[in-house]
Simulated scan of single mutants.
Amino acid sequence: MYGRYYENYCYCIKCFKVFMTEFSNQYSFDILENLNLKLLDYFNCNNNIRIHSSLGYLNLAAYWKLAHEKY
């Protein structure tokens, strides 16, 4: 992301809020291994399965593949 630092800061705050709402506030972990497994599952789902309206209703992996095919 380019631009002014506060634009990037706002984006980071938004991402953190979504992460806290969708993931962190729903689970509690007693050992670190369970946290690691759940985090991997969350990011895999977010990047490879979940569609994003801002990306033309594609998942992130399909969007990057499509973007790199153009160049």
Score class of each variant (00 low, 15 high):
48 N>L: 09
6 Y>S: 04
15 C>M: 13
35 L>S: 01
27 Y>P: 00
12 C>M: 07
36 N>R: 14
60 L>S: 06
9 Y>C: 08
28 S>R: 10
43 F>L: 13
27 Y>F: 15
2 Y>S: 04
23 F>Y: 02
40 L>K: 08
53 S>F: 11
62 A>T: 03
2 Y>I: 05
39 L>P: 00
45 C>H: 15
45 C>N: 15
61 A>P: 00
3 G>W: 02
6 Y>E: 09
55 L>F: 10
3 G>Y: 06
48 N>P: 03
53 S>M: 03
1 M>T: 05
9 Y>M: 06
5 Y>F: 14
5 Y>N: 02
42 Y>Q: 01
60 L>A: 08
7 E>T: 10
45 C>Y: 14
32 L>F: 13
44 N>M: 12
11 Y>I: 05
70 K>I: 14
50 R>G: 02
23 F>E: 00
5 Y>T: 02
10 C>A: 07
15 C>W: 05
9 Y>T: 02
34 N>F: 09
46 N>E: 12
48 N>G: 07
57 Y>N: 07
65 K>C: 02
7 E>D: 02
52 H>V: 04
34 N>W: 12
16 F>R: 05
70 K>R: 12
58 L>K: 05
54 S>A: 05
10 C>M: 10
51 I>G: 03
2 Y>H: 04
54 S>Q: 09
65 K>S: 08
51 I>W: 11
16 F>P: 00
37 L>W: 08
61 A>V: 09
44 N>G: 13
10 C>G: 01
34 N>S: 13
30 D>S: 15
6 Y>G: 01
38 K>L: 11
47 N>S: 07
8 N>R: 08
49 I>L: 09
10 C>P: 00
16 F>W: 12
66 L>P: 00
13 I>T: 06
18 V>G: 00
42 Y>L: 05
11 Y>A: 04
54 S>I: 03
25 N>W: 11
38 K>G: 00
53 S>L: 04
21 T>Y: 09
18 V>Y: 06
19 F>Y: 14
48 N>M: 09
52 H>N: 09
28 S>P: 00
49 I>C: 02
42 Y>S: 01
32 L>S: 03
11 Y>H: 03
39 L>F: 09
7 E>Q: 13
66 L>D: 12
33 E>Q: 15
13 I>E: 09
8 N>E: 02
29 F>P: 01
14 K>T: 08
8 N>T: 03
48 N>K: 13
25 N>T: 10
29 F>L: 08
11 Y>E: 09
63 Y>C: 07
43 F>D: 05
43 F>R: 08
17 K>N: 12
4 R>Y: 09
34 N>Y: 12
51 I>Q: 12
